[in-house]
Design a protein around this nucleic acid. Structure first.
Length: 401
RNA sequence: GUGAGAUUAGCUCAGUUGGUUAGAGCACUGGUUUGUGGUGCCGGGGGUCACGGGUUCGAGACCCGUAUCUCACCCCA
């Protein structure tokens, strides 16, 4: 038997998926965002330049291949790069103004699958272009809060500031110097990180490293005045809007393009993969991908991780079930259901059964009304209807259905 | 990529030191003296015991390999 590839699942029971998508789409539209769809396949160079070759995503997790035309392409491992490319390619950077997009769809990373981590997974994300103000960072965070609250999901918000091109390079130097001086005391992973992505040592899980890093230079102590002020404004905004948060000076993002505000939404109860949404500001990325310098900020939600946490509201009895006690009335109920379906849900049993069997089936369908025609009803030009919720019965002329 | 544990019916799981025809609950399906569901009773279908080798008179069980799932690491949403 041919099976689906490892870490790639069918979505057979799509109720939660649809429920999430509707909720998130609603919120995004309430914030004035419009839908954008970009290709799943892009030139490999796009991700190398945006996400960064130092990241594991690009370094070892991309579905990359040479297509029949000899182009080096790969399945998108994340959503931002494609949206930024589309923004530049359609010359929206030159047009000026503000652009706000939301997107959703599959992403691909060649990882070892676990719960909340798949090779083909789904993200819902937004990207806001042209707003340099930290108030937009706040808008974006409020949007995630709205989505999670509407879905009744408990979360913790962690924020940090990564600094910008004024203060980050200097901080990086300071940190590198610190690491060089403690090479013998840090774990093997951190030695490796020092060369690939030194900022990442900050969220190392090794206790010995963490104790050591308490004395390391701190991101937040090295912010330039502009970054520092924005970060304070953001915290005040969160407080005045009653959004609980925690400043996590060790919060770093895995993708290279982030600067200034970085945030992560965490949930307990889904195991080690506890980040359900993440995002931040990426003011340099548009320019870096050959566009006109445009500030931008966005987030992405990991859909599968969120689905683990969603409790679907209970379905109420709804719609009609049509059944016949004898073969000869089936064409009649087929017509009646066709009529009823113009404005309501209606299912038809295509085979004659006993009344009891029909009631059982109607109940299983979670129908509100069970409508049955038997010999008695047919002779009187009537249909028997039971309201399965009210438990009341009635008999009406079937032309009035 | 590293380490660990799993895999028996559609689902959740039993299955004794290796020994007849591999079981249960749920789900599905049919019937239930006369036309009343969710909540009675009786029946029925459904398993290449993940796949491939090996040990043995005999393997669902023991050994090896592969695949997949799960957990942790790494990484990240």
């Amino acid at each position: 038997m041919v099976k689906s590839l490892r870490g790639m699942n069918d979505i057979i029971d799509s109720n939660k998926f649809q429920y999430f998508l509707q909720t998130a789409t609603n919120v995004a539209q309430n914030y004035g965002y419009s839908y954008i769809e970009t290709p799943l396949l892009e030139e490999t160079a796009l991700f190398k330049r945006s996400v960064g070759e130092s990241s594991d995503i690009v370094g070892k997790e991309m579905y990359q291949f040479i297509d029949k035309g000899g182009h080096d392409v790969c399945l998108r491992p994340e959503g931002t790069a494609g949206v930024v490319r589309a923004f530049i390619q359609n010359k929206l950077d030159k047009a000026g103004g503000k652009y706000k997009f939301f997107y959703h769809g599959p992403m691909f990373r060649y990882e070892r699958p676990q719960k909340g981590r798949l090779r083909e997974f789904h993200q819902f994300g937004v990207e806001s272009f042209g707003e340099i103000s930290v108030y937009e960072d706040m808008n974006i965070i409020m949007m995630v809060c709205d989505i999670l609250n509407n879905l009744n999901i408990d979360f913790k918000l962690k924020i940090n500031s990564l600094g910008d091109s004024n203060c980050m390079p200097q901080y990086r130097e300071n940190l590198l110097e610190f690491l060089e001086n403690h090479l013998d005391d840090i774990c093997d992973d951190c030695v490796r990180r020092k060369d690939t992505n030194p900022i990442r040592v900050l969220d190392c899980k090794n206790n010995k490293c963490q104790t050591l890093y308490e004395n390391a230079p701190k991101l937040l102590d090295n912010l330039c005045p502009s970054c520092d002020e924005d970060f304070k404004i953001l915290q005040n905004l969160l407080i005045s809007n009653n959004i609980n948060f925690e400043v996590d000076p060790n919060l770093v993002r895995g993708l290279d393009y982030y600067s200034k505000t970085a945030f992560e939404f965490i949930s307990s109860g889904i195991g080690a993969q506890n980040a359900i949404a993440g995002g931040g500001r990426y003011d340099r990325l548009v320019e870096f991908l050959d566009g006109k310098a445009t500030p931008a900020v966005g987030f992405a939600i990991g859909v599968e991780r969120l689905l683990e946490l969603i409790e679907l509201p209970e379905d109420e009895r709804d719609g009609w079930y049509f059944g016949a006690l004898d073969e000869q009335y089936i064409s009649l109920i087929l017509s009646l259901s066709y009529k009823k379906r113009k404005n309501q849900k209606a299912v038809v049993s295509l085979k004659p059964r006993t009344l009891k069997a029909h009631l059982k089936a109607a109940d299983k369908e979670n129908a509100r009304y069970c409508a049955i025609i038997g010999e008695n009803e047919f002779q009187d030009h009537k249909i028997w209807i039971k309201d399965l919720y009210q438990k009341s019965e009635s008999v009406i002329d079937f032309d009035t259905i």
